[in-house]
Design a protein around this nucleic acid. Structure first.
Length: 460
RNA sequence: UCCUCGAUAGCUCAAUGGGUAGAGCAACCGGCUGUUAACCGGUAGGUUACAGGUUCGAGCCCUGUUCGAGGAGCCA
């Protein structure tokens, strides 16, 4: 009488048994005496077949008229059937009884296409849709893989403050909040605190939301996003890059292993992700600028430039945006063009010190460039990691703070770290939403966050 | 901050040169034993973002405003 309650993800282990599913009506089609209910329970989507002679006229009428997103409990026999749609699909429930928990009102999100604004206004409901569901499950895997790798490689998580007294890299892009009688700012990085942490614990990371008040309206920007920032004592830039490529590869390979259903639902070309294994290519900023200048000249002359696989470069609407001279930071067109020359993420090292943060260690023989490295994701997803070796000499650090026009007082404690056992050390920050967007192959980072915050978007 | 594009039914979009506001989906009613965004028949659904202007007549042309999308800059 009482059938076991089973998650849809585990249905394949219950073929031939009578089980109970609890969930919500995702979609429905009918054919005379047959009603096909697509029921989702959070773990997957299962087609439940209601046949009038099996359940009686009364139950069939209820099932046949049930609105989308009604909550329900269904009991029936699990059957393997190649025709059955769903996630993972291939199994369906031959319904014996059906209980409606709540009959839903008209649901605003239908099976047809919707516009961005409408969907974002209904984000609290949109996350039920299968694509959004899949993306957010991949996000959860990414976050779990991040912690698993770091925790098993000698890192400990040390939480850094979100309310901070000053800026690490200038105040123009910070959200200001009232802090009793003074001003505070929402953190845009935990890095400086991480540097304190390594002298206590050796290897640390912080993982949480960060905030940037940038007026950016692009597919790569949120005002609130999650970032993981590992920091390592006794670590130079080369050692850092080896850690980064192992780390990123682990995240991607974990998703391929654990989210095959989700990536399939998203239509992701997983062959691009399977190649994400170390070593990642490394190019210097100097070489990258020369490559971009050559690319720019050829495109402006009407010539074709090809990607790593021989296909013409994609997504270059205005070739003149690739114009660059030594000393300029990369814009997104530069990153988009450059990354297409490689089949996996690429490190760009040795950026000009002038365009990077004050705390980055200069090369001793070439102080105009610093021991920095950005990791650029393939397929136009842009920078997913920014990292560097940090300045370990107190006097140099103080000079750099002044050269960047920053006040020395708020950084007193930070500079002081160099007085007591300073060592070469390095760290990086990886943006979660960009990483998830890349792995899922989605257009915009807003879909990689459950409730994204953007310029002009604070609801719901 | 700048550039480009847009706003018409609950949703996605049409509407020839300025001449009575249209379709698909969703909803509602009916039909169908294998549907995959089902299909077939029917019903209902509108202050064309807002304000002003031109015109005999404006969804359409002009001015302003608001909101949205994509991109640049900045960044992960």
């Amino acid at each position: 009488m009482h059938a076991p309650i089973v998650p849809i993800a585990a249905l394949s282990q219950h073929v031939g048994q009578v089980v109970t599913l609890r969930g919500w009506l995702y979609n429905k089609t009918g054919k005379g005496k047959l009603a096909f209910l697509q029921v989702r329970d959070g773990s997957g989507i299962c087609q439940c077949v209601v046949f009038r002679p099996n359940v009686g006229d009364e139950t069939f009428a209820i099932a046949d008229k049930l609105p989308q997103e009604s909550s329900l409990i269904v009991t029936g026999a699990v059957r393997a059937d190649a025709r059955a749609p769903g996630v993972p699909g291939g199994y369906e429930l031959d319904v014996q009884s059906l209980q409606v928990v709540q009959r839903a009102e008209d649901y605003p999100i239908g099976p047809k296409e919707h516009g961005v604004e409408f969907l974002m206004d209904h984000r609290h409901l949109w996350i039920r849709s299968s694509r959004q569901w899949a993306v957010l499950r991949v996000r959860a895997t990414v976050m779990r893989a991040i912690r698993a790798w770091l925790d098993s490689h000698g890192f400990i998580e040390v939480s850094t403050p979100i309310l901070t007294p000053s800026a690490a890299e200038g105040t123009t892009n910070l959200f200001e909040v009232a802090y009793f009688d003074e001003k505070a700012y929402l953190a845009q990085t935990g890095q400086l605190y991480n540097e304190a942490g390594i002298f206590a614990f050796g290897r640390v990371y912080c993982f949480g939301p960060t905030f940037r008040a940038e007026k950016s309206k692009t597919r790569r920007h949120l005002t609130e996003f999650w970032m993981v920032e590992p920091e390592i004592a006794f670590c130079d830039l080369d050692q850092l890059l080896a850690i980064e490529e192992e780390f990123v590869s682990h995240i991607v390979q974990t998703c391929l292993r654990e989210n095959a259903n989700e990536l399939k639902l998203l239509g992701r070309d997983v062959s691009r992700l399977q190649r994400v294994i170390p070593p990642f290519p490394r190019i210097t900023y100097d070489d990258a600028v020369r490559t971009l200048q050559e690319m720019h000249a050829r495109l402006m002359a009407g010539e074709t430039v090809v990607a790593y696989d021989g296909a013409p470069l994609q997504g270059i609407e205005d070739p003149d945006l690739l114009r660059i001279t030594w000393g300029m930071d990369f814009g997104s067109p530069h990153e988009t063009a450059l990354t297409q020359l490689y089949d996996r993420p690429v490190f760009v090292t040795g950026f000009p010190s002038a365009v990077k943060a004050f705390y980055m260690e200069p090369y001793p023989d070439r102080p105009e460039v610093c021991k920095s490295a950005d990791l650029l994701a393939p397929e136009g997803y842009g920078e997913i990691i920014g990292g560097s070796e940090r300045i370990s000499d107190g006097a140099l650090l103080e000079r750099r703070i002044r050269e960047h026009g920053l006040p020395i007082e708020p950084y007193k404690w930070y500079v002081e770290l160099r007085k007591y056992g300073s060592v070469p050390h390095s760290g990086f920050g990886l943006g979660v939403e960009r990483t998830v967007a890349w792995i899922c192959g989605i257009e915009h980072v807003r879909e990689a966050s459950p409730f994204p915050r953007l310029l002009n978007r604070l609801y719901p």
